[in-house]
Design a protein around this nucleic acid. Structure first.
Lengths: 241, 241
DNA sequence: CCAAAAGTGTTAGGAATACACCCATGT
DNA sequence: ACATGGGTGTATTCCTAACACTTTTGG
């Protein structure tokens, strides 16, 4: 997060990102924890510069936080309830961190700007978790992946945002063929199935699932993957187009 | 449209409304024409007051323009391309209407505010066209219903907005049971079918369509409607819940 | 009685689901 | 050989699309 400044960014409009990754059969969300006393969590977010488009802004924010340039993203909803502001959270944060913040810190400087009522555009992103190098911002203590079922309680409506993002993901995943953004370059059919099972939180029948996915005609079958296990070696696949 | 003023509204954020109605087997959109020389058309739009939520703002704008309080609406997308502004259109408008505008008119006063780069939240609304009393704003010459296939060319990306709105409507119509918002209180099955045919721009089989709609279990069958025609009288239906 | 349009039933096709079997792999 | 897990084929169910027939209405 940069010092906003009134001129550089559009006022009272922000972007919040729900970054989905997949690992160990779990759908995960990348969430930073603020480096202050009091357990403050908030989705990666940012503001929109005057000379950039909103998708472009989301892309910039996502690159800053993940290191990935070519990222899959999509807006899913705007959040703009009356009085939607982080002011109570920030006031609490300041109260709990009087010493650390001092008087010159930008949080005090920009307090009024940051704590205005904000409308926020929600974007969700799908990434190959292995390619991400999570980038803490200067005010983050940590930034990590959390199973979407066990998310920390975040500020404002950020937990709702994740719910809505997942809802949209589930609706779009088949139609837009975007699931493969969550997987590495090559993968087995079982991995695809486990990914789907993580996303929908329900089991799929193995044979029918394979048929369904292959019928999409978007996978290229590569060589077999010998794992050393005492069973038939699965094929590797690559997503094409 | 009111004189915006810097304090009352959120800056650089607007709402544009695609208001769908249905009449004479045609899906129509309510579009005002500005009362200036030069054929300027623009979707009904407005700004978000500091103390109101975005849905609430959309509702207010829609009520102002249609006279209907309890209106079905839904956000469908945010439009925020770089340099998205009505400035070139407004400059052209002013140039073509020098005499009419004069010096005291608010368009001159608020020119800088209005012509900033704007991010706009797109809402679509579904209304019973018979209940609408289109309300021109003070700067409109007219406000009328246009078949979505023969829309006038509007400013900025407003024609794209209608396309995206219709796309979303098509996706949501079955899932959310919202089609009936476009019909009057009571209607025949044929009217429902013709509505669907207008929306999807393709024919449906009569018997299967009837089955599909009745299987939704949301219609109440009322008395028959005798039109005087020499054929079996159709049932009237009412949407319930 | 007839034409027109509405209502309803019946069949056919195809997709999604369930069930079953065979194959490759390393111990 | 055998246990394990992967690949594939077949049957069943379910939903949708297509076809057909009957009923009601006013002239």
């Amino acid at each position: 997060m940069h010092v906003p400044g009134e001129k550089k960014y559009i006022q009272q409009l922000s972007i919040d990102c729900v970054i989905f990754g997949y690992q160990q059969r779990q759908l995960k969300v990348l969430i930073p924890k603020l480096d202050f006393t009091g357990d403050f969590w908030a989705l990666p977010s940012g503001y929109i510069q005057q000379q950039e488009g909103i998708d472009q802004a989301a892309r910039r924010i996502l690159e800053e936080r993940t290191g990935i340039k070519d990222i899959y993203l999509e807006q899913f909803r705007v959040f703009g309830a009356t009085e939607r502001t982080n002011r109570p959270y920030l006031e609490q944060l300041i109260q709990l961190n009087e010493e650390k913040i001092g008087n010159q810190h930008f949080i005090r400087q920009e307090f009024e700007w940051i704590t205005q009522r904000f409308v926020s555009i929600g974007y969700y992103a799908l990434v190959d978790i292995n390619q991400v190098i999570p980038q803490k911002s200067e005010i983050d203590e940590s930034m990590g992946w959390y199973n979407y079922k066990e998310l920390p309680t975040m500020i404002m409506d950020h937990n709702d945002m994740v719910d809505k993002a997942l809802e949209t993901l589930r609706l779009n995943i088949d139609q837009k063929l975007i699931a493969f953004n969550l997987l590495p370059e090559t993968f087995t059919m079982k991995e695809v199935q486990e990914l789907y099972e993580a996303i929908f939180d329900k089991p799929f029948a193995r044979n029918n699932f394979q048929k369904k996915i292959l019928d999409l005609n978007v996978l290229e079958r590569l060589e077999k993957k010998f794992t050393g296990a005492a069973n038939k070696a699965p094929y590797l696949y690559r997503f094409q187009k």
